[in-house]
Amino acid sequence: MSIEREDLMICPARVTLDAAQMAFFDGLPTKAPSVQAELGCELEQGHEGSHAALGQQVDTTMWWIQWTLSASEINPYTWCPATHLPDTERRDDKDCALFNGHPGSHSSAKRSWQASEAA
């Protein structure tokens, strides 16, 4: 197993979702895989502000879990508009995989279930 360079630059923070948060995700109308109870921050290591992990995507809305040492919440966002190729028709590994307005660098980490949902 190889370690991608980008993996070394991702924040190591983790969060465990509570029962109410899991129930929220279970109630969303989507065909995406079920949400894991423990998620890792997807932002750049050393980022400003709260940590963030994608919980679920429903149509054009992405539900992100954001947390600090004292609290966590679920917030709706749209995709970050940054892309390496202009005028792309679908999201792929060349588009930023984070939410619009995220702190730090853009991430081009591809999520396989997002690509299959977009197809």
Rank of each mutant, 00 (worst) to 15 (best):
E4R: 09
R5D: 12
E6Q: 12
C11R: 01
P12H: 02
R14T: 05
T16N: 14
L17E: 01
D18V: 00
D18I: 01
A19G: 00
A19M: 05
A19D: 14
F25V: 08
F25Q: 00
D26G: 00
D26R: 07
G27D: 02
L28T: 07
T30D: 01
T30H: 04
K31S: 10
K31F: 11
P33E: 04
P33D: 05
S34A: 13
S34W: 02
A37W: 10
A37S: 05
E38V: 13
C41W: 08
E42N: 08
Q45Y: 09
G46L: 07
H47P: 14
H51S: 02
A53L: 10
A53V: 04
L54Q: 05
L54S: 03
V58P: 00
D59K: 13
M62H: 13
M62K: 11
W67H: 12
S70T: 09
A71S: 15
S72Q: 15
S72N: 13
E73V: 09
E73C: 15
T78D: 04
T78M: 09
W79I: 09
W79Q: 15
W79H: 13
W79R: 15
A82F: 14
T83C: 12
L85N: 10
P86Y: 10
D93I: 11
K94H: 14
F99A: 08
N100Q: 09
G101P: 01
G101H: 07
S105F: 11
S107Y: 02
S108H: 14
S108C: 08
A109P: 00
K110P: 10
K110S: 06
R111H: 04
W113G: 10
Q114D: 09
Q114H: 06
E117L: 15
E117T: 11
A118P: 11
A119P: 07
A119C: 12
